[in-house]
Amino acid sequence: MNVIDFVMGHALQWGSVALLMIGLYIVMTRGNLIKKVAGLNVFQGAVFLFYISIAHVRDGTAPIVHEDAVLYANPLPHVLILTAIVVAVATTSLALALIVRIRESYGSIEEDEMAKVDMG
């Protein structure tokens, strides 16, 4: 298998890996807590897309029973990721709630400014 096939044949997976790295990069480099949460969402979203991509069946249709359909996509990863999305929503809302409390007690949501407040 040559390189082009390897890249093009896994375009969906490469896409999710790219998003995964972008999300992780945002989480690591941004000092603003809201941006960190956004990065975390990109990071998790990449995994959702990855799960959807592995459910794909060539020429398969949506997994709803229909008389014309012969091939269906695998519905199990869809269901799994529905659960994971719920988890991600809960994580995000908890993170935002924490940010509200941090803002109340520190008066800032920037890492460096919070560190300054803690220093004294």
Binding site: V27, T91, A95, I102, S105, D118
Partner: peptide
């Protein structure tokens, strides 16, 4: 302690990763 919320936030980010 107010630092608890900061610690919790970092815990959340790393735990989620």
């Amino acid at each position: 302690d107010r630092r608890a919320t900061r610690a919790a936030f970092h815990y959340l980010v790393q735990g989620t990763i």
